[in-house]
């Protein structure tokens, strides 16, 4: 790790680098998994991001120095099996039409056919660097620059839950209805966030996501089932 710095009197920030890079993220995830495994009583919250981990500790139980030294001690742990078993999760997506109102314009903008945009978007394996913005919103890496496009000039007040969008060279999925300026190219019928479930989150940091094009009939069927689709493990 490059540095550990205090974030006020109850937090600290561990930094591994300063660019979006799967190798740097691997270090983030390795330490994140190690921290979670320990179940420290002073640990109140932990947030892995692109190149950093934020830790929220209880200063009535532990000092900053103790937390820092404990974290430094963790990095020498041998590599666990955890990282070899990234979870691959499928996002069945109905592209275009009502569910993807900006797909046609995006295709025109990038001088591609609609089918080409779908093909380019659904081919890569995307790495979930982190979740943020709203519960369950994944920040993904790995999108093809050929379909990169700026945000809409006028953000929408309401984006339906499950919408798949593009902003700059990022793609993402809205787990709940929210405002936003991403270009919407499709929608998934499966719930990414459900507070009533014992595990409310379909997607976790470090997962691999794959978008799978589906037709309207499958969309409706899956929407009724509202099941999650894990692959591998």
């Amino acid at each position: 790790m490059e540095s550990i710095q205090p974030l006020g009197d109850q937090g600290l920030l561990i930094t591994f680098g300063n660019r979006i890079d799967p190798e740097i993220h691997k270090k983030v995830r390795r330490l994140y998994e190690a921290i979670k495994k320990e179940q420290f009583s002073w640990l109140m919250d932990v947030v892995p991001a692109y190149t950093t981990i934020m830790i929220n500790y209880n200063p009535l139980q532990v000092s900053y120095e103790e937390v820092r030294e404990t974290i430094k001690g963790l990095k020498t742990h041998p590599r666990g099996k955890d990282l070899k078993h990234r979870k691959r999760k499928v996002i069945p997506t109905l592209y275009g039409g009502e569910t993807g109102p900006d797909l046609e314009e995006l295709a025109k903008l990038k001088d591609l056919s609609i089918d080409e945009v779908i093909e380019i978007h659904s081919r890569p394996e995307y790495l979930v660097y982190m979740l943020g913005f709203t519960p369950g919103f994944p920040y993904l890496g790995g999108m093809d620059e050929r379909i990169a496009a700026p945000r809409l000039k006028n953000p929408r007040k309401k984006i339906p839950k499950g919408s798949v969008g593009i902003a700059g060279s990022q793609t993402g999925i809205y787990p709940m209805e929210s405002p936003g300026g991403w270009r919407l190219i499709g929608r998934t019928p499966i719930p990414l966030f459900d507070p009533e479930r014992e595990d409310p989150f379909y997607i976790k940091p470090g997962d691999i996501l794959v978008f799978k094009p589906i037709d309207e009939k499958t969309f409706n069927q899956l929407e009724k089932e509202s099941r999650w689709h894990h692959e591998g493990d």
Binding site: L7, Q10, N18, V47, A49, Y50, T51, M54, M130, G132
Partner: peptide
């Protein structure tokens, strides 16, 4: 910066 975690009071 690259987005990172935020504490109450940041």
């Amino acid at each position: 910066i690259l987005s990172d975690g935020m504490m109450f009071g940041a």
